[in-house]
């Protein structure tokens, strides 16, 4: 710097003039680069915020859709149960009561007891249905509780043996949105098993470790070969499972082979 200072003193005025003009121009142009960088960075920041808002909108829409689907599934279960179970119980009760003969006390006692028993069973079934009607609250009680209720309905059909294990302590803070999506995925998987798998044993495993929640469902059904599925057959079900797992930042792994059952594993950061 000092050398430059002495050198400057030696320079003639014309050279100094040129040097000052050029360096002033450079000192004026330099801030322009700073401003340009700030502008570009700000624009990127804006785009990032817009993308985040769009993702949030998609997520919210998916949550609403899932809530509706859970409600729809609940209504279907209730409809089927009213028709197949409670309806039948009440029909038999009605028949039993109709068959009562007023002059045969001994026989009537048995029929009345049977009618009382049938009515009590109907009330019990109605109570269970009442609990199921509170679909949203079911998930609100926690994923573990919701899964237990779902299993309860499946086991009632008597066609399936369901094994459920919950390993690892769930975190104190839950994520209701993730719980809802995971529960809907489980419903979708169980629907697929009931409709297509011809399985007799279903195993469900919920595991929490290192901030990762793992939900695994496998059955002993007929399985399928992924490659053999037609494009249309890849199934809204399987695609939906993968899409929904992605929405909550997780992934779905589906493994299946003919006659070897199917295993579906959902891994997601939690809460």
């Amino acid at each position: 710097m000092l050398e430059l200072f002495f050198y400057m003193q030696e320079m003639d005025k014309e050279n100094i003039k040129g040097l000052i003009i050029v360096s002033t121009l450079i000192f004026l142009i330099a801030p322009v680069f700073v401003f340009s960088y700030v502008f570009i960075h700000n624009r990127r920041k804006k785009r990032h915020i817009e993308e985040k808002a769009l993702m949030q909108l998609t997520f919210d829409a998916e949550i609403t859709k899932t809530q509706l689907e859970v409600q729809e599934q609940t209504m279907q279960t209730i409809g089927a149960d009213l028709h197949d179970n409670i309806g039948q119980l009440l029909s038999i009760t009605s028949l039993t009561l109709n068959s009562i003969e007023l002059d045969n006390d001994k026989k009537n006692r048995k029929k009345i007891d049977a009618a009382i028993d049938l009515t009590m069973r109907s009330i019990k079934e109605m109570r269970l249905l009442g609990k199921l009607l509170q679909g949203d609250q079911l998930v609100g009680m926690g994923l573990d509780e919701a899964i237990k209720y779902e299993i309860n309905w499946i086991e009632k059909s008597g066609k399936y043996k369901v094994n459920y294990t919950n390993d690892g302590e769930m975190p104190a803070a839950s994520s209701p949105d993730k719980d809802l999506i995971l529960f809907r995925i489980l419903q979708e998987v169980l629907n697929n098993i009931i409709k297509h798998a011809q399985a007799t044993v279903i195993s469900i495993k919920l595991e929490y470790e290192d901030s990762v929640l793992r939900l695994q469902v496998n059955d002993n059904g007929i399985g399928f070969n992924h490659a053999d599925l037609q494009p249309g057959q890849v199934g809204m079900g399987l695609r939906n499972i993968q899409k929904r797992a992605g929405i909550i930042g997780g992934e779905a792994n589906i493994t299946s082979n003919p006659d070897e059952g199917t295993t579906i594993e959902i891994l997601t950061p939690y809460p």
């Binding site: 003193q9 000052i20 003009i21 360096s23 000192f27 004026l28």
Partner: peptide
Amino acid sequence: CGTLFFYFGSTACNLFYHQLDNIQI
């Protein structure tokens, strides 16, 4: 922006202030 342009732009003049006497443009 104005502040940065002004004070950064005047750097050359500040550095060579004493050499700039009577230099006409």
